[in-house]
Design a protein around this nucleic acid. Structure first.
Length: 580
RNA sequence: GUCCCCGUAGCUCAGCUGGAUAGAGCAUCAGUUUCCUAAACUGAGGGCCACAGGUUCGAAUCCUGUCGGGGACGCCA
């Protein structure tokens, strides 16, 4: 249960009763009403702005409304005290037993604690990674992969029907370049001296393997053929080869897509024509001229009549071209088809995770989705800012294999998937991120991954020790939780009870990074309480002469472990049993 | 030239879609180990929330402008 959502219901009921009694006018809008934990715990457990939000519409002073509302809220059996403060806040103190019941819920539900029905099983499509199949994944892809995957998991936990999708850009000029680059490496594999890679082809050494593989398969059969014969072969082979590699990297990272959509297949199936027809039907396409682009020099700019989409009607800066000068579709056209296709597959709610270099593309894609779905579809775009890989403050520039950038594989080999995933999620997606290899594996409070995992390891350690001492650690949900009376213990109980709310808030905002900060705070509170047992042995979890008290405390410890496990599950990180 | 993101403690960052006296870690200083992992914990100092207006009961948060940093801008994807 999300206690705060629960209490909004309680408050609304009390306000309804006031309306029925004529103390408030009918027809008030309750949508701005909040119930949240006050910043200062001394104020109580729940603060509501109800009186202030309603004052204007009700034509009453906030404090008068609050004074009338307070006794009605105090009548709730879970409320033990309450007061009106400041400009009209109502602060409520809830009974310890109310919070202990939340703890019991957690113990019963295990890592499923925090699961929400907020999403109402609504279908959501999260498209992420979607890297071009022209080379290995690098760090920027890693960030997108981790953010997208965690966001998808988070929405899953919040009760949405989520599909994880990868859109393969296997059409267009860049895969032709890939095909030609592969052909060069193919010749090389057959003994040719190819010299330096010509301008305009991919220089990365990773293509050597691809060329060698196709040479093994096909021998010399392409070597004297014209390009039109070998290009489709080279292209298809390289794409398949590199996609396998990408999938393997993602698999190591713990990312498993539900759907891979091929741009080429979409085009061939007529999806672009269908989207084009739909936009035409809505009269959103016309022929016109565009201003030359500003900034960069338009060296080969030609002013010409173009097929344009009325993006400006939906909030974009200019109308956008759908066809290239040779008459073929632009990437934008294909991508409209992609999003339209997703809509037709039942996804009104769509989320794309992109790199920051696609920032200029957001408005037009949102405009297109709004347009082609007749306003029924909604696209949210999460832009991931640059990632720089550092080692002790020094910038790490490139990998040996790819030549120009640090690959995801390098990162995985060095620090492992769990560290990559958690660390990438300790920052908002729209802020740049320096990934420090030394810090990521450091064992200190400065490293959130380690700190949270250490908390979990301590929890497992206590439970192991108790078990070895003959205390039953099964069925802790029936432990006598009312034996938990210490202020530190009750504070931890309250913090555990925040978890369902954190899940819902992070899911609603599409911000998985919030989970990382919550887990860090929870771990900090746990470590602090742990150390109090040093000064006051009576507070230790295991009290040999009192089995029931011990079981109550172990229940608390286990619940914290469940919540950490639950959060790490969203992140796709495995909780550790012990530190080594 | 236009658009997008960012600007919070010396450093790295949070700040729960507008709430009460702005929070963590690092660094600095001072403490805590016969104890379930001290790889931890406790305390102190440190702020004109870039700047200037506006919106209202109330602004780090929303709107406008300025400054500063990053990114993007037809026929690439």
């Amino acid at each position: 249960m999300n206690p705060y959502r629960h209490f909004i219901g309680v408050i609304e009921a009390a306000l309804g009763a006031m309306q029925a009694a004529g103390e408030l006018p009918a027809g008030l809008d309750f949508s701005a009403l909040t119930a949240e934990p006050p910043r200062d715990a001394a104020h109580g457990d729940i603060a509501t702005n109800a009186a202030m939000v309603l004052a204007k519409a009700a034509q009453k002073k906030p404090r008068d409304i609050a004074d009338a509302l307070l006794p009605r809220l105090k009548a709730n059996p879970d409320v033990v005290d309450g007061s009106v403060a400041g400009p009209g806040f109502i602060n409520l103190k809830l009974s310890d037993s109310f919070w202990r019941e939340r703890l019991r819920e957690c113990l019963k539900e295990g890592v499923a604690y925090g699961d929400s029905t907020m999403g109402g099983a609504r279908k959501v499509n999260v498209e992420y990674v979607s890297a071009n199949p022209t080379g290995p994944l690098h760090v920027a892809h890693a960030r997108g992969a981790v953010v997208g995957d965690a966001l998808a998991n988070l929405l899953l936990k919040a009760g949405y029907a989520v599909t994880k999708e990868y859109y393969i850009n296997d059409a267009g000029a860049q895969v032709d370049i890939l095909g030609r680059s592969t052909f060069l490496r193919y010749k090389e594999a057959l003994g040719d001296h190819i010299g330096t890679i010509p301008e305009g082809l991919y220089p990365g050494e990773y293509l050597k393997e691809v060329g060698a593989a196709i040479a093994r398969r096909d021998g010399a059969r392409w070597i004297d053929k014209p390009e039109r014969d070998w290009l489709p072969e080279m292209r298809a082979f390289a794409i398949a080869f590199l996609m396998d590699e990408i999938k393997a990297d993602l698999d190591t990272l713990g990312v498993r897509m539900d759907v891979y959509t091929s741009e080429r297949a979409l085009v061939e199936a007529g999806a672009v024509d269908r989207a084009f027809q739909e936009l035409t039907r809505q009269d959103l396409i016309y022929s016109g001229r565009l201003e030359p682009p500003k900034g960069k020099k338009p060296d080969d700019w030609e002013d010409r009549e173009q097929t344009l989409f009325r993006a400006t009607k939906f909030g974009d800066e200019v109308d956008r071209p759908l066809k290239k000068s040779d008459g073929s579709w632009t990437y934008f056209s294909n991508d409209i088809a992609n999003h339209y296709d997703k809509f037709r597959r039942g996804f009104a709610d769509q989320i794309d995770v992109w790199g920051a270099d696609h920032g200029g593309y957001v408005k037009r894609m949102k405009a297109a989705v709004k347009a082609i779905t007749g306003g029924d579809g909604e696209l949210d775009v999460k832009l991931c800012q640059l990632v720089r890989v550092m080692r002790n403050g020094e910038l790490v520039r490139m990998s040996k294999r790819a030549g120009t950038f640090v690959t995801l594989r390098d990162l995985l080999d060095e620090v492992g998937p769990d560290v990559v995933r958690f660390t990438m999620l300790t920052r908002k997606n729209d802020a740049p991120f320096d990934f420090d290899l030394a810090k990521a594996t450091e064992q200190s409070r400065d490293n959130p991954v380690w700190y949270v995992q250490y908390g979990h390891a301590r929890i497992r350690s206590v439970l192991r020790k108790s078990s070895a001492a003959g205390i039953v650690v099964d069925g802790l949900d029936s432990a006598p939780l009312d034996r938990l009376g210490d202020a530190g213990e009750l504070s931890l109980v309250r913090q555990i009870a925040q978890w369902p709310r954190q899940v819902e808030a992070a899911a609603a905002a599409h911000e998985p990074h919030r989970i990382a900060f919550y887990l860090y705070d929870l771990a900090a509170a746990f470590h602090a309480h742990w150390n109090r047992g040093g000064d006051e042995p009576a507070l230790r979890f295991i009290v040999e002469e009192d089995t029931e008290l011990t079981r109550a405390r172990l229940a608390l410890v286990q619940a914290i472990g469940f919540v950490i496990g639950s959060g790490l599950k969203v992140f796709g990180v495995t909780p550790v049993e012990e530190m080594r």
